[in-house]
């Protein structure tokens, strides 16, 4: 048991060593819930909402990935929106810190509407 605890601590050391994630400031004044709630529950919120919106057609839910991106996508010096999954940005900073790869942006837009982005990679 003790050996296991030591092992886990050792394995977790890189996490302690890494800098805490930092991200650009959001555009809005307040999020839809407190930070600790959002950090813990945003996957469930989004998963619930995605099924409601897509399959049932319920619009205007409180939690919405589109709204997350609208509020949290930073704007670069030349006026372009920065993708939220770019390194150091809102989604990616935490997700790389906790080593969880979100599947959202395989499909979902990473910047708000009305920005023209490069065609293909």
């Amino acid at each position: 048991m003790g050996a296991l605890a030591v092992l886990i601590t050792l394995l977790a050391l890189p996490a302690f060593a890494a800098d805490l994630p930092q991200w650009p400031k959001a555009k809005g004044e307040a999020c839809i819930a407190a930070n600790d709630v959002m950090r813990r529950e945003h996957p469930d919120m989004l998963k619930h909402q995605r099924d409601d919106t897509l399959r049932l057609g319920i619009r205007g839910a409180k939690a919405s990935l589109k709204a997350c991106v609208e509020c949290h996508a930073a704007t670069s010096a030349d006026g372009h929106a920065v993708p939220v999954d770019a390194p150091g940005q809102f989604c990616q900073s935490c997700h790389s810190y906790v080593a969880v790869k979100p599947d959202c942006f395989e499909c979902h837009a990473t910047t708000p509407k009305a920005t023209v982005r490069e065609a293909s990679r």
């Binding site: 991106v69 499909c107 837009a109 065609a119």
Partner: peptide, 12 residues
């Protein structure tokens, strides 16, 4: 891989 998605139409 797709890029340039519209927020209202995710595709990947």
């Amino acid at each position: 891989d797709q890029s340039g998605q519209q927020p209202h139409l995710p595709r990947g």
